[in-house]
Amino acid sequence: MSDKVNTDVWDEDRLVSLLKEGDEEAFRVLIRKYQTRLFNIAYGITLEREESLDIVQEVFFKVWQNIHTFRKDSALSTWLRRITVNQCLNWQRRWKRRFRWRHQPLEKDEWDAPELGTDDYHPGKLYDKKEIEKVVWENLNKLPEDARTVFVLREAEGLSYDEIADVLKIRRGTVSSRLFYARKKLKELLKNYYF
């Protein structure tokens, strides 16, 4: 079960046709190849580790159910990313209202007040790594969903504008402006901490 599967020797065409046949080994290869990448996208959008793991599982299961509808007009990776983003956005819609209290504290008040370390708050202070990490995620969470999604695809996945446009089915110009907005906003928010 845990024996190493070399994910590189499978070219995409072969992988897809085996997936369409319902080949279990092919699913194993698919999962090993993409799980961390899809997790990054899910985590960047939802900022919930457990949920992201669930979402990734759900994506692979959706692939199992719908692989027969996959046409070769886009790359398998694009298709997977698209399903992942959709699953995340569904998740957001479904759960955000329900778990609003978890997002509330991050949204405003706490941030503006320098109560984060009360007496040792100095603008020039070097924050420890853990704190910066937390702050980055919190601020990512403050970005609007669409800007955040583009930013995550760019920064976590290193996709080009065209690839992002393809995954999200938006225009290239929109990718550029959302990305610009996301960076601008994040730089503002993180100013005290890093730059």
């Binding site: 699913f27 999962i31 793991l53 692979f60 299961f61 199992w64």
Partner: peptide, 17 residues
Amino acid sequence: VSGTRFDHIEDNVLERI
């Protein structure tokens, strides 16, 4: 990513399949 355990994904998905 390095603080996340992925090993159960494969098992869970294959079981569902």
